[in-house]
Simulated assay, not measured.
Amino acid sequence: MLTFDTARRLADAALAEGTRRRAAPLTVAVLDGGGHEVVVYRQTGSGIARPQIATGKAWGALGLGFSSRGVAGAAARFPEFFNALAATGGRVVPAPGGVLLRTGEGDIVGAIGVSGDNSDVDEACAILAATQVGLQPEPPLPAGG
């Protein structure tokens, strides 16, 4: 189970990593395993659509069972799949930055979505945040961190 305290720590860690990387202002959404928003943080200066984008990255990862980077890859390979995703009312955002959160046993407990900088930076902030709070991110932290 993903607690409010863990979700808050995830969001704080993602924002801290963005600051460390000198990223553009970020928005972070943390969803529980049922796709419900637990926390959404928007830094001053982060665009007004960023909460929906961050949530869509996380929601798509949860809904499809793989990271939003994987969702983007599937959309590129299968355009009809992407069209079907559009029928979700825009809830799925096929761009890196949505990361599944697993326990050490491999159970999915939620997802984190980050939006505000380029998608690779968004994703890196999400992955590092997950590892900092003791969860297993998917995709995992690349070798060399």
Rank of each mutant, 00 (worst) to 15 (best):
G73E: 02
L31N: 09
A87W: 00
R102V: 11
V133P: 15
N118G: 06
A129C: 03
D32L: 06
T44W: 02
P25M: 00
D122N: 13
K57D: 03
G56T: 08
L100K: 10
G33Y: 09
P94L: 00
L31F: 12
P51A: 09
V92N: 06
A143N: 14
G35A: 10
G134H: 10
D5S: 13
D122G: 14
A95N: 07
F81A: 02
I127T: 00
G73I: 03
I127G: 00
E80G: 02
R77K: 11
V30N: 12
V133G: 15
P94W: 10
T103Y: 08
G63P: 06
R22D: 00
G33S: 13
A95V: 07
G34I: 02
G98P: 09
Y41T: 14
V99S: 11
G104Y: 05
H36T: 07
L141Q: 15
E17T: 09
A13K: 08
E123V: 04
V30L: 14
G45W: 02
S67L: 01
F82Q: 04
A95H: 05
G56Q: 13
G34V: 00
G145C: 08
V38D: 15
P139I: 00
A29G: 02
A29I: 10
A76C: 06
F66I: 01
L2P: 04
T3I: 12
V114H: 07
L101G: 03
V30M: 14
E80I: 03
L31D: 10
P140F: 03
G144L: 05
G89L: 11
G98E: 04
A124H: 01
G97W: 00
S46Y: 00
V28F: 01
T44N: 09
W59N: 01
G60I: 01
R22K: 12
D12W: 10
P25F: 00
A84V: 04
L26R: 03
V28S: 10
Y41R: 09
R42M: 05
G144K: 11
D32M: 07
A87Y: 04
R22H: 09
A76D: 05
D5A: 11
L85R: 07
I53A: 07
A126D: 01
G70T: 00
D122A: 12
G63Y: 13
A11Q: 11
L10R: 15
K57P: 01
A13G: 12
D12V: 12
G116A: 08
G45Y: 03
I48S: 10
Q52K: 13
A54N: 12
F81W: 06
V30E: 11
T44F: 03
Q136A: 11
G104N: 13
G90L: 09
V40S: 15
A111K: 08
V28H: 02
A111P: 11
F66E: 08
R50I: 01
S68A: 11
P79Q: 05
V28W: 00
P25R: 00
G113C: 13
G97A: 13
Y41M: 14
A16Q: 03
A13D: 08
A11V: 15
T27G: 11
R8M: 09
G33Q: 09
V109R: 13
D122E: 05
A76W: 05
T131N: 11
V121R: 08
F4A: 14
L135I: 06
I108S: 05
A143L: 14
L2F: 11
E123I: 04
D32P: 06
R22M: 02
G98L: 07
P96T: 07
V114E: 07
H36K: 09
V38Y: 14
Q52P: 03
G35D: 13
T103F: 15
